[in-house]
Design a binder for these strands. Structure first.
Length: 102
DNA sequence: CTAGTGACTGTTT
DNA sequence: AAAACAGCCACTA
């Protein structure tokens, strides 16, 4: 049993059209301060996974990936998440927890 | 066992 | 505001 599964469950808890930071996922999974492990866990996900890993972004609301970054951005846009000119998400509106109210 | 690394975060320059 | 530093935990060599 790995903590990865807890991270996956937390990631799946993120509703469509919303995003969560690695720290939030780690905390929700019961492993605060394990944001990096969330990244590693998600990096181990298969291509056909049902986990919405694309809804997980860093604390700046930006995509930390490199090769899959454009892909993730497209997936989020397909769910209604918008990016600004800098390629960042407005966490004040799309953040999974806190500050989701206008 | 020790050392290096990473899809991170918060504080300090 | 952007970059550098340090702290953090799990995995790999």
């Amino acid at each position: 049993m790995s903590r990865h599964l807890a991270f996956y469950a937390a990631a799946q808890s993120v509703p469509e059209g919303r995003v969560a930071t690695y720290g939030q996922i780690a905390e929700a999974a019961g492993f605060p301060r394990c944001a990096r492990q969330v990244g590693q866990a998600l990096s181990a996900l298969p291509a056909d996974t049902s986990v919405p890993w694309h809804r997980v972004v860093n604390a700046k609301g930006e995509i930390s990936l490199r090769e899959n970054a454009p892909n993730q951005r497209r997936l989020l846009e397909a769910e209604g998440v918008t990016f600004d000119a800098r390629g960042k998400i407005d966490l004040a509106r799309f953040s999974w927890l806190s500050a989701e109210e206008e």
